[in-house]
Computed example of a mutant assay.
Amino acid sequence: MVRGELVGLRAMGPDDAEALWRWNHDPEVMRWMDDGYPQTVEHVRSWLQERPRNSYADALFGIESLADSTLIGLVMLHGTEPEKGIAKLDIYLGEKDHWGRGFATDAVRTVCRFGFQDMRLHKVSLTVVTENESAQAVYRKVGFVEEGRLRQVFRRDGQWFDMFTMGLLADELR
C-alpha cells in the first residue's frame, strides 16, 4: 500500500466491483466524468479480474481511508511512456460522505509522489471540465498549473463544455 496522510492507495481487484459499479451509476459522482455506457456488476467484476496487473504504463489504485480502511474512490496513472516520462491522471471519490474533507487532495498528492519517486516520472498531466471547480481546486493545491484549453470536448445534459489541460512537473509537487 502507498500511504499518504489520510489515504492509502492499493491495487484494485474483483472484490471491488460492487463499489465501482455503484459509483459509476451514480449521476452525482459521474457528473464531470466520461461515464460511457451502463455496465452490469458482473462485467465490472470481470474487467477488474482480467485487466493486466499494475505496470508502468497503467496503474490503477483503490483509495482507502486510513481511518477505517473503507474504499472511497480510485486513482489511475495511465498512458505512461518511458521515453517521455509523462503519465495521465484520473481520479474520483465515489463515497460522497468523503467529499470536501481533504481525501482527494491527499490521494492526488500521494499518487503523484509515487509517480515521481517510484516510477521516475517527469510530469503528470490531466484534463478537467472547466466547470468542475472543486476538482481544479484540488489539483492547484497539489501544484498543477493550467496549460491549455480544449474547446467543447465534453458533453453533459445536451450541453458542450470546455476542458482545461493541467500539468505538474516533479519539482512542483506541494
Score class of each variant (00 low, 15 high):
7 V>C: 09
140 R>Q: 12
39 Q>R: 14
67 A>T: 12
64 E>Q: 15
63 I>W: 03
144 F>M: 05
164 F>D: 02
166 M>E: 05
156 R>M: 02
6 L>D: 11
95 E>W: 01
11 A>L: 12
25 H>R: 00
126 L>A: 06
86 I>V: 15
129 V>C: 00
42 E>I: 09
140 R>A: 10
162 D>R: 03
163 M>Y: 01
47 W>A: 10
126 L>W: 05
53 R>N: 15
96 K>G: 03
141 K>E: 10
72 I>Y: 07
27 P>F: 00
127 T>Y: 04
89 L>Y: 02
18 E>A: 04
5 E>I: 14
18 E>Y: 13
98 H>F: 15
131 E>L: 01
46 S>A: 14
84 K>W: 15
25 H>T: 01
47 W>D: 12
28 E>I: 01
83 E>W: 15
48 L>Y: 12
165 T>W: 03
77 L>T: 08
52 P>I: 04
7 V>P: 13
62 G>W: 06
33 M>A: 02
112 C>A: 12
44 V>W: 00
32 W>V: 01
64 E>D: 15
117 Q>H: 13
149 R>T: 11
128 V>N: 01
52 P>N: 03
2 V>R: 10
167 G>W: 12
14 P>D: 05
54 N>V: 09
109 R>L: 13
33 M>G: 00
131 E>S: 03
62 G>S: 03
14 P>I: 02
89 L>V: 04
121 L>C: 10
117 Q>L: 07
120 R>M: 10
48 L>E: 09
9 L>Y: 12
43 H>K: 08
118 D>E: 15
61 F>I: 06
149 R>S: 04
116 F>V: 05
123 K>A: 10
137 A>E: 13
103 F>L: 06
137 A>F: 10
174 R>K: 15
65 S>N: 09
86 I>Y: 09
71 L>Y: 06
104 A>K: 04
93 L>Q: 01
173 L>R: 09
84 K>F: 15
34 D>R: 05
167 G>D: 07
132 N>E: 00
132 N>C: 00
54 N>L: 03
154 F>T: 00
79 G>S: 08
87 A>V: 05
9 L>P: 09
83 E>G: 15
119 M>K: 08
94 G>L: 02
26 D>K: 01
94 G>N: 00
133 E>I: 01
53 R>W: 13
19 A>H: 13
100 G>E: 08
113 R>D: 10
29 V>Q: 01
50 E>I: 06
38 P>A: 03
20 L>N: 08
45 R>N: 07
32 W>M: 00
51 R>C: 11
93 L>G: 00
117 Q>I: 11
168 L>E: 08
57 A>K: 14
150 L>M: 10
81 E>M: 10
144 F>L: 04
170 A>K: 13
120 R>T: 10
115 G>Y: 06
168 L>T: 06
84 K>Q: 13
48 L>Q: 07
167 G>Q: 08
42 E>W: 09
132 N>A: 03
26 D>R: 02
109 R>Y: 15
118 D>F: 07
108 V>Q: 04
109 R>K: 14
51 R>W: 12
125 S>F: 14
163 M>A: 06
78 H>K: 12
123 K>R: 15
109 R>C: 02
80 T>C: 13
173 L>Q: 11
88 K>S: 13
41 V>E: 11
141 K>A: 10
29 V>R: 00
32 W>Q: 01
137 A>G: 10
146 E>T: 15
94 G>D: 01
39 Q>F: 07
160 W>N: 04
122 H>G: 09
12 M>Y: 09
130 T>D: 02
43 H>L: 11
